[in-house]
Simulated scan of single mutants.
Amino acid sequence: MSTNVQNFAVANLRRRPAAMEVGGFVVGFDPATSSPYVNYATPLPGAEPTAADVAALVSAFRDRGLKPRLEFAPDRAPEVEPALRAAGFGVEAVHEYLVCEPGALSMPPSAGGLTGPLVAAPTTEQEYVAIDAALSEAFEGEFAASAEGVARLRRTQENGGAVRFVSAPEGGCAGGGSCSAPAVGTAELAGIGTRPAFRRRGIGAAVTAALTAAMFEQGAESVWLEYSGDGSRRVYERLGYSPQGTRLYMALEA
Rank of each mutant, 00 (worst) to 15 (best):
Q157G: 04
E158G: 04
E158K: 13
E158L: 05
N159R: 14
V163N: 02
R164N: 06
A168C: 08
P169D: 13
E170I: 06
G172E: 10
C173Q: 13
G176Q: 08
G177M: 10
C179T: 05
P182S: 15
V184K: 07
G185C: 06
G185L: 04
G185Y: 07
G185E: 07
T186L: 11
A187L: 03
A187E: 04
E188W: 13
E188Y: 09
L189F: 12
L189A: 03
A190Y: 10
A190W: 11
G191F: 13
I192G: 04
I192S: 03
G193L: 15
G193M: 09
R195H: 11
R195C: 15
R195D: 12
R195I: 09
P196A: 10
P196L: 14
A197S: 14
A197Y: 01
A197P: 01
R200Y: 13
R200D: 14
R200K: 10
R200N: 15
R200V: 10
R201N: 10
R201G: 05
R201I: 01
I203K: 04
V207K: 01
V207T: 01
V207Y: 04
A209T: 15
L211P: 11
A213C: 04
F216Q: 03
E217G: 14
G219T: 13
G219W: 12
G219A: 15
S222M: 03
S222E: 14
W224G: 00
L225G: 03
L225M: 00
E226L: 12
Y227N: 12
Y227M: 10
S228E: 05
S228D: 14
S228G: 06
G229T: 01
G229C: 11
G229D: 09
